[in-house]
Design a protein around this nucleic acid. Sequence first.
DNA 1: CTGAAAGCGCTAACAT
DNA 2: ATGTTAGCGCTTTCAG
Lengths: 353, 353
Amino acid sequence: MGRRRQAVTIKHVAADAGVSLQTVSRVINNEPNVRPVMKERVQASIDKLGYVPSKAAQQMSGSRSYLILAINDRDLTIADWKAREGRDWVDQMMFGGMLTCAEHGYRMMIELVDTHTDHVERELGAAISALQPDGVILTPPHSENPLITGLLAERNIPFARIGSTQPGPGIAMTMGDTHNARIATEHLLGLGHTAIGFIAGPAEFSLSGWRVAGWQEAMFAAGLSTEGLLEKGDFGFETGLVAARKLLGAANRPTAIIASSDQMSIAVLEAAREYGLEVPRDLSVISFDNSPIVRFTQPALTAIDQPIAATASRAVELLIAARDTPAPTEPVRVKGELVVRDSTAPAPGHNAA
Amino acid sequence: MGRRRQAVTIKHVAADAGVSLQTVSRVINNEPNVRPVMKERVQASIDKLGYVPSKAAQQMSGSRSYLILAINDRDLTIADWKAREGRDWVDQMMFGGMLTCAEHGYRMMIELVDTHTDHVERELGAAISALQPDGVILTPPHSENPLITGLLAERNIPFARIGSTQPGPGIAMTMGDTHNARIATEHLLGLGHTAIGFIAGPAEFSLSGWRVAGWQEAMFAAGLSTEGLLEKGDFGFETGLVAARKLLGAANRPTAIIASSDQMSIAVLEAAREYGLEVPRDLSVISFDNSPIVRFTQPALTAIDQPIAATASRAVELLIAARDTPAPTEPVRVKGELVVRDSTAPAPGHNAA
DNA sequence: CTGAAAGCGCTAACAT
DNA sequence: ATGTTAGCGCTTTCAG
């Protein structure tokens, strides 16, 4: 395997255009102080020779790496990939992140990092030393891990924290969980439901709490109680089933349930079947995530669409801009929206408006 | 934004261990000609200082980039991401590819390239010039594009062609399509079906033909005709529906249909409904791909699981090994398997064995 | 506005 | 077995 050197380098371009390396460099980086004539001449040579600057060399010489690193939880991600249950979080991150990166001449790379070990710092530190990314996107549950945010801050690398509103270094971002839970609840209120149950996600995720808050706000605003209507799961089917059974087995059985994940919503469907309840006639269900499978459940699930792609895209923009613009100090909010399908209907005995 | 230089470099390690840069380099790369004592001393310094070599610098100095590029079709991939219909091809490639890369200290990056333009060479050439990957994984329909394979061969970059058995440069790989179609057909034959329809994929994909071949082989071996039992789609729902209607509307209606994609299989389910046929009582269906949604259709689909992750993993291994071992000359075959669910049953009027 | 020089962190090639 | 030298391709000083 012969050594593979860059086919055409800045030198070739410089020689071809009859200018110095520096001038070519200025043209590449769109820097000032180049006469239009020169710029044109150089650009012509670049096009002619098909020159593309080497990212490694650019990085070496102390400029950018043109790399954004998206950090995901290793165990969760691998579990999703193995299970093939349709969770397309990674896909949607790439969708939003990669394409926006490409627009700016950047690339995005996914990096899996263990949350639960004490090697977090070693793992992330190694990735950063090896790759020297220009920006990092943190996803829950990494977003609020002080070991991680601390390391990034210390190394002076711009980063976005998706699913975190805490103050501190890095760009805080949310997908509008409170708002999303509120509009889901309001949708049900509008259908005449008054007993609306909620299955929350695990406490390690801040967004679990925000969603509960949105639901409670809407309920309180409607003058309704949430007493005995809140259960908790871990986003998975099993715990969702337990939670759903509790809700449906209670004396004051809700006529609608909002579950904080698609798997837990499917569990609600299952529990409803067990209790002989027909969805949506006897029970309305709203899901969170809106991953591909929700269109194929029986019935298809009304769901809050988490704007993962849009958020990743926004994160990339902010990270790239962070080079010259100060990062936003307030949390950046990218709101989700409700996609109405067949799992929601007027409350039993309620005359539709 | 202060300049971010490598925190700890090979120099620091060399100084700390009291050896030359070269010795440290040798230890890093596990090269011979280092006394165990030295090696230990250097390793101690590396661990102490938390040193991790910069990929950019390694690449610059003419060694590896430690990067494997996975090329996917831009339009198809973006369409999948947009549609969110559960196609998890990219996920599964990352699953297999990334993890295997990580085991060897490599990373994998997804790159989207347009098939249908004449910029293919420019686009891919640019990615290669910028990134200098140590290996490239080609997926259909890129795998047999001579513009692409030619470019890669010319630049002397090891590459794998998934879904291609043609001779020529690069490692040819298949997911056992002929075999897979055969076992699907045999499964149906075993259930007593004799009229087994097949909905093929588009001709641009070699694997479309292989699958047809596997089906035909099995049919012929059983002494059955395939006359009027073959239709074609483009892997999508709409064309699948047209094909399914043709098959089910024909005089000699098949009692079973194999469709070359999940979307087309869902279309078969839809068409069956139109014709008042109950699956699997009146019609058995086998799908290809086994993406997440097939478990949620009514009924859940029996499907051939395409071993995307396993194939990507194998590709990475072969690519990394290509540095010192000659690449395999025969096509590498990673077989899929049949996952039996609820869409297949004995043929009408057939007594189960 | 343009160019020349120095160096980023590492490894290949050549000493020793 | 170890060290020295010379670059890789680019950008950042610093001179003109």
